[in-house]
């Protein structure tokens, strides 16, 4: 790593090599003890020290509790939605079963035969023995 890249990294990531890109940390650590490296890190470290002074307070109990209460409400609402969805799904499955059953009964059940048969004068055991309509037309 040359001084230019070292300075660019310090300008971007600061004087602490732990914040530098992982791939360049080793090369940076080799350059760091040089006179130039030390000066660059020292300069970047001044801003780091100022940035470190800006600490943020930990979240208060009120905020923590409020977020957990909102989570509880959301989970309860989700459970209700799941319950209704499951109910609708079961109802759908039941309806689909009923329709399928009806369709099956319609297809499988044989056509109902009349329990009596009206014999006319031309009917025989081999079918209708009356004059053949087609032949009559041909003869004409």
């Amino acid at each position: 790593m040359d001084a230019r890249r070292f300075a660019a990294l310090a300008a971007a990531y600061g004087g602490d090599l732990r914040r530098w890109p992982e791939a360049e940390r080793m090369a940076g650590a080799i350059f760091a003890p040089s006179e130039m490296g030390d000066a660059i890190l020292s300069h970047a470290g001044k801003l780091d020290a100022q940035l470190d002074s800006y600490a943020v307070e930990a979240p208060g109990k009120a905020l923590h509790g409020s977020i957990l209460r909102a989570a509880g409400r959301h989970l309860a609402q989700r459970r209700r939605q799941l319950f209704w969805r499951m109910g609708l799904a079961l109802a759908g499955i039941g309806l689909a079963g009923a329709v399928a059953g009806l369709a099956l009964v319609t297809i499988v059940t044989p056509e109902v035969q009349p329990d009596h048969y009206v014999l006319d004068a031309n009917a025989t055991a081999f079918g209708d023995a009356g004059p053949d309509g087609d032949m009559i037309e041909e003869d004409l």
Binding site: V56, A58, P59, L63, H64, I67, L68, A71, G72, L75, R78, R79
Partner: peptide, 18 residues
């Protein structure tokens, strides 16, 4: 919907988010 996981996630992420 695990309530313990909800608590853990809040403890882990709230300080960072805030």
């Amino acid at each position: 919907g695990d309530p313990a996981a909800v608590q853990s996630l809040v403890a882990r992420k709230l300080p960072r988010i805030l």
